[in-house]
C-alpha cells in the first residue's frame, strides 16, 4: 500500500514530462554540444598520437557518449531548486501536507522523469555514435553490466539525496541559489563528465576515490568501456556507505531545521 502511493507519483511525473517536451530538446542539444566538444578536442589531440592515458580515440569518444548519457539521466538538481524556491516563497507547505514522506516524493518524482527520458536519451546517444562515426567500445560481460546497472541506480539515488539535502539547507540559510549554481559546475568536473578523471595526477585520483562523485558517472562509464573492472565491488560498497551516511545526515537536518519553516516566505 505504502509503495503504491509512490508509484502513483512516479506515473504522474511520467505524464507531466509530456507537457515539458521542450526540456528534452534542450537536453539533447546540450548533449550534442558535449559530444561535439569531445570530438573536436580529442580529434585534434589524437591527430598526433594513438593513445592518451590508456585511451584510444574510440574509447575516449565511447567514454563521452556514456558519461553524457548518465549525466543527462541525473535530473536531481531540479529537486534542490524546487525545494529551495518553495521554502523561499513559503509554498513548501504543499509538500508538508501530503500523506507521503517528502524525500520519498522527490525520489519518486526523479524516477518518473528518468524513466520518461531514458529511451529518448538512449536513442539520442545511438544517433551520436553514428553521426560522429564512433567505433563504440563496450564491455561484453553481462555480469559486469548488471553490476554497473546497480551502481548507476545507486549513483542516481545518491545525487537525489544530495540535492534533497542541499534544498533543505534553505530552511536554515535562506538563500542557497548561488551555491546551487556553483555546485552544478563543480559536480560536472568531479564526476568526470567534463574529462575522464584518469587524466588527473595519481594522488588526486586517490583522494577522489574517497568521495562519492567518483562512483556516480566516472566509474560506471569506465566500467562500461571495459576498464577498471576490479573497482566495481569497491564502488558498490563505497557508494552504498555514502548513501547510508547521507540519509542519516538528511534525517538529522530535517528534524532540526523543519521547525524553522514558517510558511510565509522571504
Amino acid at each position: 500500500m505504502g509503495l503504491r502511493k509512490y508509484l502513483e507519483i512516479l506515473k504522474i511525473f511520467i505524464k507531466t514530462q509530456l507537457a515539458w517536451r521542450g526540456d528534452s530538446v534542450i537536453q539533447i542539444l546540450f548533449s550534442l554540444t558535449k559530444i561535439l566538444f569531445a570530438s573536436l578536442l580529442w580529434g585534434t589531440i589524437f591527430a598526433g598520437r594513438d593513445e592518451v592515458a590508456g585511451f584510444t580515440l574510440s574509447s575516449m569518444m565511447s567514454y563521452y557518449i556514456i558519461s553524457s548519457f548518465l549525466t543527462q539521466l541525473d535530473m536531481s538538481s531540479k529537486v534542490s531548486m524546487e525545494i529551495s524556491q518553495r521554502i523561499r516563497n513559503g509554498t513548501f507547505s504543499k509538500y508538508m501536507v501530503l500523506p507521503v514522506n517528502i524525500q520519498g516524493y522527490f525520489v519518486a518524482m526523479e524516477m518518473g522523469m528518468v524513466l520518461f527520458h531514458l529511451i529518448i536519451y538512449f536513442i539520442t546517444s545511438v544517433i551520436w555514435i553514428f553521426v560522429f562515426r564512433i567505433k563504440f567500445v563496450f564491455t561484453p560481460d553481462p555480469a559486469i553490466v548488471a553490476g554497473i546497472g546497480i551502481l548507476i541506480l545507486l549513483g542516481l539515488f545518491f545525487m537525489a539525496q544530495l540535492n534533497y539535502y542541499l534544498g533543505l539547507l534553505t530552511l536554515k540559510y535562506e538563500e542557497i541559489g548561488l551555491f546551487l549554481m556553483i555546485k552544478d559546475n563543480l559536480v560536472a568536473f568531479v564526476t568526470g563528465s567534463i574529462i575522464p578523471l584518469t587524466l588527473l595526477p595519481e594522488h588526486f585520483l586517490w583522494i577522489m576515490k574517497a568521495f562519492p562523485f567518483y562512483y556516480v558517472t566516472y566509474l560506471p562509464s569506465m566500467l562500461l568501456i571495459g576498464r577498471l573492472k576490479g573497482e566495481l565491488g569497491m564502488g558498490l560498497l563505497a557508494l552504498s556507505c555514502w548513501c547510508v551516511v547521507l540519509q542519516a545526515v538528511i534525517h538529522v537536518t530535517w528534524q532540526n531545521y523543519r521547525i524553522k519553516y514558517d510558511g510565509v516566505g522571504i
Partner: peptide, 29 residues
C-alpha cells in the same frame, strides 16, 4: 557578487580541465 562567483567558478574549472589535459599531452593542435 553572485555573477562573479558563478562565472569565476566556470573559468577556474575550465583552467583546471586544461591543466589536467596538458599534463598528459604537450600540444592541442
Amino acid at each position: 557578487f553572485g555573477p562573479f562567483f558563478v562565472d569565476s567558478c566556470v573559468f577556474l574549472v575550465q583552467l583546471c580541465v586544461f591543466e589536467v589535459i596538458y599534463s598528459n599531452v604537450d600540444r592541442i593542435g
